[in-house]
């Protein structure tokens, strides 16, 4: 009981010292809630899904449409709420892809070592040295502009980070007793890697994933803005900004609000990531 109270106290103390992290957590939480409950929260759910209302085109923000309407008469607030689902789903997919590719490679490289390690790490160096955005753009241009291809394109230069993390984690775990014990009783290598080492890699991987979420949301929105990601009538924030671009001098609200949505969701993940980095940095832990 006592320890739980002190844990809570530490928790509270941490947030008092780091109000930014708390703010970040609130933003991320809001983002998740909005993504899950968009159909309930949106004032015009059908318009959020893309239904047009040509009689209500290009209306400025008002009580009826808090953030105004776009060129097809759709409520921008509803579109933004629905857009959070696109962002969340896409960013999570990218993260899952890079984890699925990067993690096993890192464990194998770290555990097997030798030539296998060299080969895997050189290949990952290769991918890291690629100019990621340009590569993504080239891939999308090749495969055709849509969200799936944009996600694939972002994953290609990204997985090596996860290989590096899990490899170094594996290297340190390899020398631990429980691994030695398992090896000595003849547990086959694949089983050791995925039963014993993998679970211990999960924490750093999740931390890295949180740090990456914001960047991925931003990169995906950027590709969509260029017309290389989601396509209309999808309610994607990047698409919404680019749709409003030619209206920027006459109907400012169309591009402005989706940008605010991107800013806040990315900010949320980055603040949380920053907080984690602050806590995790061993040199700074007093």
């Amino acid at each position: 009981m006592g320890s739980r109270v002190s844990a809570f106290k530490r928790f509270l103390h941490f947030f008092l010292k780091n109000p930014l992290t708390l703010f970040g957590i609130v933003l991320v939480f809001l983002f998740l809630v909005i993504a899950l409950a968009a159909p309930v929260l949106a004032p015009y759910p059908d318009q959020g899904r893309g239904e047009s209302l040509m009689t209500a085109r290009l209306q400025a923000p008002s009580a009826e449409h808090l953030l105004g309407t776009d060129a097809l008469g759709r409520d921008i607030l509803s579109r933004i709420l629905f857009g959070s689902r696109v962002s969340l789903k896409a960013a999570l997919t990218v993260i899952l892809i890079v984890i699925a590719v990067g993690t096993p490679l890192g464990i194998i490289a770290g555990y097997v070592g030798g030539v296998v390690d060299d080969v895997i790490m050189r290949i990952s160096d290769l991918f890291l040295a690629f100019p990621s955005l340009l590569l993504a753009v080239a891939i999308v241009a090749a495969l055709g502009p849509n969200l799936t291809n944009a996600m694939i394109a972002l994953s290609v230069p990204w997985w090596p980070w996860y290989t590096r993390i899990t490899r170094s984690q594996t290297l340190s775990l390899k020398e631990r007793q429980f691994v030695d014990a398992a090896r000595s009783v003849g547990v086959p290598a694949p089983k050791i890697m995925f039963r014993h080492i993998l679970p211990n890699c999960i924490t750093p991987v999740i931390v890295q994933a949180t740090l990456d979420m914001g960047y991925i949301i931003l990169a995906l929105a950027g590709l969509s803005f260029l017309g290389l990601g989601s396509q209309p009538p999808t309610a994607d924030w990047g698409v919404m900004i680019s749709e409003g671009r030619s209206f920027i001098l006459t109907h400012w609200w169309i591009s402005t609000f989706p940008g605010v949505a991107i800013l806040f969701s990315v900010l949320g993940f980055n603040l949380v990531g920053d907080g984690i980095a602050e806590v995790m940095n061993p040199k700074r832990r007093r």
Binding site: G50, E51, S52, A71, L72, P145, G227, P232, P233, S246
Partner: peptide
């Protein structure tokens, strides 16, 4: 995809 006019009316065709 690079033609803005197509982009603009496409949702209406679908609908």
């Amino acid at each position: 995809a690079e033609n803005a006019a197509h982009q603009a009316y496409a949702p209406l065709i679908k609908e």
